[in-house]
Amino acid sequence: MTYFPAVLFFALFASTVFGITQRETPARMIRYGVYCFTLFVGSAIALSWLMFLIAR
């Protein structure tokens, strides 16, 4: 497995647990889970580009 699928799996599993445990209603659980997933993946991509630009 390469790094990017690992990031996606990590974000998916962690967001699922965060969504279920940190919110009370199913609609808010899904919304918070999607929010966490987006932040996980988005920050990983942003930091990757930042490190790429620093290394150049």
């Binding site: 497995m1 690992a6 799996f9 998916l12 599993f13 962690a14 699922t16 647990v17 279920i20 445990t21």
Partner: peptide, 20 residues
């Protein structure tokens, strides 16, 4: 449903960790 999703997520992360 909550229990199944939690179990799948935690088990999935643990198994993937071992697979890596």
């Amino acid at each position: 449903v909550r229990g199944s999703l939690l179990a799948a997520s935690i088990l999935g992360m643990f198994v993937l960790g071992l697979r890596m």
